[in-house]
Write a protein that binds this DNA or RNA. Structure first.
Lengths: 153, 153
DNA sequence: CTAAAACCTTGACCCGGGGGTAACGTCAAT
DNA sequence: ATTGACGTTACCCCCGGGTCAAGGTTTTAG
């Protein structure tokens, strides 16, 4: 027991693994309530606040956006119990995002490798560096003309 | 022929697939030289400038950072010919970064899936939502004490 | 009691631009 | 020569998820 126990921001940070700055940021973003202050103006957090912070930390470590987390916390405090369906939806969306990102990175990676290993790996430095010359068509045909509206994909 | 040909920023943008904003940004970041201006203050680009922009666009599409690109361009203009070894090093580093990122995302993904599918999938909503309760040890033991210096990874 | 450590607020910065705005420049046609 | 339609200028604010600095107050340790 000891519900009277209040922690300053630095101690709260140590308990949660966050930094004081991050905690202040979460407060500004509305994830954490505005805490009461000591006579000297120090933020004072309760054990419940610490729980909230720990939750935020876990959620962040899963890659959830602060906005998503804020949404969950809001729903939670409105309805008392957290809305599992909503949370699950967010998690599923995140998984989808990750899959998309991984797919994109895989494409990038192969383009990168192809460029790196393009001509000149064989064993001679002639005149062409990868990337620099890749897709390098000289711009000889510049028309200042009016009908230049070449659509650009 | 036609080296006198100068393009305004919008035309340069169309030729390279960049936006005028991006081009101005590259100028501020030192990737593109400060171009001469028309009597009315418009930036005027040469075909060589266009080539540089096209190179930047290719490099960006490979995910290179503006700083890396700036480095390559600087070396290139100092030594005349682009330093293949350096470029290749940058590309290899990028590949490594991508691999690291993908590995990290894979870990995140499985944590996310595990959390999402944890208890309650079976078919009942008792009292626990995933995430919210995951790793949820109540903070009962708060020491205001001095020896709190638990190292933070 | 004094000095150090912790805390306070405000503001700027990182990346790679996107969006918007007011005020000019430029070019074709009338 | 003027009009109208764009193009361009510089400037400032915005995004995420914080980090860092400055300069001042408060609490805590010795």
């Amino acid at each position: 027991m000891g519900t009277l126990l209040m922690l300053t921001i630095g101690r709260a940070a140590k308990h949660t693994g966050l930094t004081p700055k991050a905690i202040r940021l979460y407060e500004r973003r509305g994830l954490i309530r505005t805490p009461p202050r000591s006579s000297g103006g120090y933020r004072l957090y309760t054990a419940d606040d610490i729980d909230t912070m720990a939750f935020i930390r876990r959620a962040r470590s899963l890659g959830l956006a602060l906005e998503d987390i804020a949404g969950i916390l809001t729903l939670q405090e409105e309805s008392g119990t957290p809305p599992c369906a909503t949370v699950r939806g967010i998690l599923t969306q995140r998984v989808q995002d990750i899959d998309d990102t991984i797919a994109h990175l895989a494409v990038l990676r192969s383009a990168l490798v192809a460029t790196r290993d393009s001509e000149s790996l064989p064993g001679e430095a002639h005149d062409g560096c990868p990337i620099v010359n890749a897709g390098h068509r000289r711009v000889e045909s510049i028309q200042t003309g009016t009908r230049t509206s070449r659509p650009k994909p």
